[in-house]
Design a protein around this nucleic acid. Structure first.
Length: 923
RNA sequence: GCGCGUAUAGCUCAGCGGUAGAGCACUGGUUUUACACACCAGCGGUCGUAGGUUCGAUCCCUACUGCGCGCACCA
């Protein structure tokens, strides 16, 4: 056999065995000793394919081609049904991480598929101005250049930010192009754009008019570094080792009135205005209503009773600092306590009139404690004391609760409407298991502090008149002469919360809103469900309910029909990616090394609703290999003339053809079900296994045989193969757009897979007889291969064999069997040295093999013994079941029949294998 | 403390009331009509623990344990 084997030439023009030099045989090795090879002309279609699939060489040009063709541009005047997604706008300061890559892959997959299904698709991109982060970056750069922000002034500084944005704000767009994101770049938006600013001012004025925005002095999370209020969600609580110090208020004599309290922040005692105990606490009954002198201040501190105090904790007495602790603030309000602020905006003690003024809060913590110790007031010091302390997510330092005047959104009604939208089914959360968290959030939401003491952002549209007047002015209104605008800007999330409709031109009634709003689905990680989705839902339901908003006639006043929450991307061991661990993966690095398709397929394949996904390099390699496999399979099919077209009538197709077409239909159905349910993993898995295990490993091998047959089989095989690959590539294209584009165009000559139609199942009933026959063939082939492997026969080596006992149905597959199992018809000198017998659904064929006398009897015996053990176990199990009267009486008939059949099979197997072992022993 | 999720092969994860699966890893073989980023064969699991429901439980229920996440608390 090997003597007449000449390696064919691939389209690359290199002999196939050139690959072996890669494994170290060396260029001087085998390649040179090979026979000269004649160049075989390849069919036309495969000429349009590159020699090998190297994604980096093609992806950029393919992407730019799609954009230039306008495939991603949405037409609001189209007659097609609309499908829309707004991209969660990444921070303008940021760059894409794996979480984004997952997010984008899923959105791109959804929108590409819908486009193929005939929808008018809008995927709207954009960026968030990210107030704090951006201001920090620009201020930092100016500081490096020796420019002070305050000296520069507000307007000049903002101009610098815009300059920076123009220069450096485009990083993410470039990265999105690398990923292949099919967004409508003509509608790219930025939260500080003119139109979006109008939306911000418009809704602010409406909310203000409805009494849903108000100004109040409240306790906020203050960042001494950023010198602004930040929202609850920007505060991250971390366990730290601090101290818990107890000290004594009142007299140092045990006989006179005194009370012991404890604190982890000693400096706050400078702002104490009360001591609280539980109303029922007998220990302090006499003290309630009395006053105790402050050790450093000329201030009498009342002892008050409040049920908030836990009498079991510590001494049962709590010092109250209303201006610097949330709970103390609440109590201060209840008891009408004074609320002196003891710190300036940088965190230094201020205004206490003590010698501690001017000290940093942490210096003051020590200094106050030492001063108290000098007075003999320290009762106990626990150190280290583990407790949880809020830190600024952005700048890292300990946040300080601080009383200040801020603007707030009254959220109760808005949050209720957002909750009701989900309760009423106007918006559906996927997976449903995330609903409790949604309700937990919207049903118990605190008023939202929206003012920030920054320059970069939407300035609060409130003006103050010279005589204390306050007025809110909309986008087309001007404040009277002499009025001053509020210096603060709005929380970034205020404008992000308008994203689904502000990007489509609201408050104008635009064709875009008409066509694409509410958006079809919002895709994001479950980790930001709360702070962003809730805000969009609140504003969306509010705006949808406004009579003059132009949206009142809409079917539901929600910003999206569905919310799909995916998991977090973790490293290959399931650990969270973080800078400190150094286990982060740059998605662009994977794009460079494995291709965007591989990155996308890895992420989509891992995306199971409700759970995080672990990705490592081995996953990316596996996906890259899959793309290569598709490429090679399609190239091979093209070399054999594969093309899609009208298929011959069923009766003229082979068993293998009918089987693979049936499987194709089943897989397409599974893929649709997966995508519709946001089960990306299921859809990808189905496609992967179909393509690799069924099309490549079996159908292509079967087709090779069909192509050799002289009765015109090659033509119909080419059509079946073409049809299968055409639909397979189209079905894969939303996830792997690049390689499928190249292959699909080569296969079909079509314009682009981006605008191809979504593949549908043929609608014909699946040929189960063909499926059974192929399953039988696979079983028999595998059994022969197993024998060959046990016997150490080379996989490529043809072995003489005589096959008997095939039924009529199976007989059609005889030549396939011989090819796949590497058998050759028996010659005159055939001598049976071994047999392989397999019980199949319709028959029990025997393959008699001539191994030229060389038989490893021990290996045969080992295998038979193993099979016998398995059959005996099966026999015992099924026999026990069938001996159980309860089982026979209560189990469904189909199950009993199945077990009965299994028992019969096992019994026969035990008998056959016992005989075989006896025969082997006799040798 | 409340809530949600999760526990299956060495690793990462599917699955399911009726014979335990995949990818990667591992072992052996391979110039097989595309593909060594491949092909062929194999090894590997009493499905967290204890009860319960059921003819039958890895799957449903209860409790427990471990892990993860969210919320609350932390004087």
């Amino acid at each position: 056999m090997s003597s007449d084997y000449a390696p064919p030439i691939g389209p690359c023009g290199k002999p196939r065995c050139a690959r072996y030099s890669r494994r170290g045989t060396g260029p001087e090795g085998r390649a040179e000793s090979l026979p000269r090879i004649e160049v075989v002309t390849t069919p036309d279609a495969s000429n349009s394919l590159p020699a090998a699939w190297n994604p980096a060489e093609h992806e950029e040009a393919l992407y730019e081609g799609w954009v230039a063709s306008g495939y991603f541009e949405a037409d609001p005047t189209s007659d097609k049904p609309g499908y829309s997604i707004v991209l969660p706008p990444p921070n303008v300061t940021g760059s894409l991480h794996m979480g984004h890559a997952l997010d984008h892959t899923l959105m791109d997959t959804l929108t590409r598929r819908k486009r193929m299904q005939g929808y008018e698709v809008l995927w709207l991109p954009g960026m968030d101005h990210a107030g704090i982060a951006t201001q920090n970056i620009v201020a930092g750069r100016l500081a490096e250049a020796g420019i002070d922000r305050e000296e520069l002034g507000r307007e000049a500084f903002i101009e610098k930010v815009w300059e920076w944005k123009r220069e450096s704000g485009g990083t993410i767009q470039g990265q999105m192009r690398r990923l292949g994101d099919g967004v409508d770049w003509s509608r790219d938006r930025f939260t500080m754009d003119e139109g979006l600013s109008r939306a911000v001012q418009t809704i602010f004025k409406k909310l203000y008019g409805d009494g849903l925005i108000y100004r109040a002095e409240r306790l906020v999370n203050w960042s001494p570094v950023l010198q602004t209020a930040i929202s609850d969600i920007e505060v991250k609580f971390e366990e730290v080792e601090g101290e818990l110090v107890s000290f004594r208020y009142g007299s140092l004599s045990d006989d006179e009135p005194h009370i012991v309290v404890a604190t982890t922040r000693m400096e706050t005692m400078l702002g104490d205005t009360a001591i609280a105990v539980h109303p029922d606490d007998e220990r302090y009954r006499d003290l309630v209503g009395t006053e105790i002198a402050h050790p450093f201040l000329d201030r009498a501190i009342p002892v008050i009773a409040d049920a908030y105090v836990d009498p079991e904790f510590g001494t049962g007495a709590v010092k109250i600092t209303p201006a610097h602790d949330p709970n103390d603030f609440e109590m201060g309000v209840r008891h009408n306590l004074p609320m002196p602020t003891i710190m300036d905006k940088t965190g230094r003690i201020e205004g206490t009139g003590t010698r501690f003024d001017g000290l940093d809060r942490f210096e003051a913590r020590v200094a106050v404690r030492e001063a108290l110790a000098e007075q003999g007031r320290i009762v106990e010091e626990k150190r280290p004391y583990l407790h949880s302390v809020g830190h600024s997510e952005r700048s890292g330092e300990t946040i300080e609760p601080r009383l200040s005047m801020q603007w707030w959104v009254k959220v109760d009604q808005l949050a209720k409407a957002a909750g009701d939208a989900v309760r009423d089914g106007d918006t559906v959360i996927h997976p449903a298991s995330q609903e409790p968290r949604w309700f937990g959030w919207v049903d118990d939401m605190h008023d939202w502090c929206i003012s920030r003491q920054l320059w970069w952002g939407h300035r609060i549209p409130i003006w103050y008149g010279p005589d204390g007047e306050v007025g809110c002015f909309g986008p087309d209104e001007t404040a009277p002469e002499g009025w001053e605008q509020d210096p603060d800007v709005l929380d970034t999330w205020f404008s992000s919360g308008l994203w689904p409709f502000s990007t489509m031109g609201w408050p104008e009634q635009t064709p875009e809103l008409d066509k694409f709003y509410p958006t079809s689905v919002l895709v994001t990680g479950y980790d930001i469900l709360f702070f962003w989705v809730a805000r969009m839902m609140m504003f969306g339901t509010y705006v949808g309910g406004l009579a003059d908003a132009g949206l009142a006639a809409r079917k539901a006043a929600v910003p999206f029909d569905n919310v799909f929450l995916h998991g977090l991307v973790r490293d290959e061991h399931g650990s969270k990616m973080s800078k400190s661990k150094g286990n982060g993966i740059d998605p662009l690095d994977w794009v460079d090394r494995f291709g965007a398709d591989a990155l996308r397929f890895t992420l989509a394949r891992g995306a199971n609703p409700g759970s995080d996904i672990s990705v490592g390099e081995s996953h990316a390699q596996s996906s890259r290999n899959f793309a290569t496999k598709l490429f090679n399979a399609t190239r091979f099919a093209l070399m054999n003339g594969a093309r899609p077209g009208d298929l011959p009538p069923r009766a003229e197709l082979t068993v293998a053809d009918r089987w693979i077409l049936g499987r194709l239909d089943q897989v397409l159905t599974q893929v649709d079900e997966g995508f519709e349910a946001y089960e990306f993993s299921k859809a990808c898995e189905a496609l992967y296994h179909f393509a690799w295990d069924e099309v490549c490993d079996w159908y292509l091998e079967l087709a090779k045989v069909q192509n050799q047959e002289s009765d015109g089989r090659a033509a119909s095989t080419a059509l079946v193969l073409g049809t299968v690959l055409d639909k397979l590539l189209r079905a894969l294209s939303p996830v792997m757009p690049f390689v499928t584009e190249v292959l699909w165009k080569a296969l079909t000559g079509g314009e682009s897979v981006v605008v191809a139609s979504w593949p549908e199942s043929s609608g014909e009933p699946v040929d189960s007889a063909a499926a059974t026959a192929i399953a039988d063939l696979q079983k028999l082939v595998t059994e022969v291969r197993r024998f060959r492997s046990d016997q150490g026969l080379n996989p490529g080596q043809r072995v003489a064999a005589r096959v008997s006992g095939l039924d009529a149905e199976f007989d059609e597959l005889r030549s396939q069997l011989e090819s796949l199992a590497r058998l050759q018809p028996a010659g005159d000198d055939f001598e049976t040295t071994a047999t392989v017998e397999v019980r199949l659904s319709g028959c029990t064929p025997t393959v008699a093999i001539d191994t030229s006398g060389q038989v490893d009897v021990e290996a045969e015996r080992k295998r038979a013994a193993k099979d016998l053990a398995a059959a005996e176990k099966e026999l015992a199990g099924t026999t026990a079941k069938l001996g159980n009267e309860q089982f026979l009486a209560k189990a469904p008939g189909a199950v009993v029949a199945k077990i009965t059949a299994r028992r019969e099979l096992a019994e026969a197997e035990v008998e056959r294998l016992t005989a075989k072992l006896a025969e082997l022993d006799a040798r």
